[in-house]
């Protein structure tokens, strides 16, 4: 089929999306389920070529794509890894994603990468470090970045700003959007005895560009954000409240460990879609 130049799709905010993982490539191409967007970890497509990138280029014909980075390390005092940012920029121009996101965390220091989303102390110093990195990334990519609140399994003595205010302030200072992870908000509240609703209430509804939902693992160390199970009922309740306040926002189900059959993942996304549809029909949220 001859077609004009590819134009990037925007996700339908009334229909949820799913995280795209390698075991689902063939099933997804075969069944083409009704989800509004696919999200991938950006770094998994940093290759110069090869089959993974070829699959993604195929899927982008049918679905809006969200690039979700795990390693730009917006909170590193060392500054951004320019090579990493260049590879992300190359992927952005190749895929023309509808959304681009990164985490509000750090993972790199002294040239060593720890391969994990490490929490920041929520302080004035962290705020200025993160905002400088977000500015640099947005400038290099020529696109608005969404930044995601992370799960944290420890708290720093140096934290002086409530997490919700920290996230909101990053968005206010840099003009970036927020990727609101409702499960992370719940995990942190459970693990640290804080208030998930206060966190969510601190975020400016107009700044939220995407929502993440996932299932955590219950361990003797508390809840761990493993993305390995269904979304908890308590998190669905928080999500419904959030959507009632924000109106329909592109919502993604993440599932990264114990990856189930594609149908299970799509059924979970359908549950989120039902919430989005109800809110849309009621005309909820900011116009």
């Amino acid at each position: 089929m001859a077609s004009a130049r590819f134009s990037p799709r925007a996700p339908d905010p009334r229909q949820a999306g799913i995280g795209l993982r390698t075991p689902h490539f063939a099933a997804l191409a075969g069944s083409r389920p009704a989800v509004s967007f696919l999200e991938v970890h950006s770094e998994n497509y940093f290759a110069d070529g090869g089959p993974a990138l070829a699959w993604l280029e195929r899927f982008r014909e049918d679905y809006a794509v969200s690039l979700h980075g795990v390693a730009l390390s917006l909170g590193s005092v060392d500054g951004l890894d320019r090579g990493h940012l260049d590879r992300l920029a190359r992927l952005v121009s190749r895929i023309e994603p509808a959304l681009i996101s990164e985490h509000l965390c750090w993972s790199r220091i002294g040239g060593r990468n720890l391969g994990e989303l490490l929490p920041l102390p929520y302080s004035e110093e962290s705020l200025s470090v993160v905002c400088a990195r977000v500015d640099e990334a947005q400038e290099r990519l020529g696109r608005r970045l969404l930044v995601e609140n992370v799960s944290a399994y420890l708290r720093y003595r140096e934290t002086t700003i409530p997490e919700g205010e920290f996230v909101a302030e990053v968005a206010r200072r840099t003009g970036c959007g927020v990727l609101l992870d409702v499960n992370n908000a719940y995990v942190n509240a459970q693990n640290h005895g804080t208030d998930a609703r206060a966190f969510l209430a601190a975020i400016d509804p107009a700044s939220v560009g995407e929502i993440h939902l996932a299932g955590p693992e219950r361990t003797e160390d508390g809840l761990i954000d493993s993305h390995g199970t269904r979304v908890l009922p308590e998190v669905w309740a928080l999500y419904e409240e959030t959507i009632a306040r924000l109106g329909p926002v592109p919502t993604l189900i993440e599932w990264d460990t114990n990856i189930p059959a594609l149908e299970v993942l799509v059924a979970e996304a359908d549950t989120a879609t039902a919430v989005l549809r109800r809110a849309s029909d009621r005309g909820e949220g900011a116009p």
Partner: peptide, 19 residues
């Protein structure tokens, strides 16, 4: 946090986890 404290924290964190 004192100015420059974030660097000390991140370096110490990496030492804990890697070293």
């Amino acid at each position: 946090m004192s100015a420059g404290g974030l660097r000390a924290l991140q370096e110490a964190f990496a030492r804990a986890v890697l070293d």
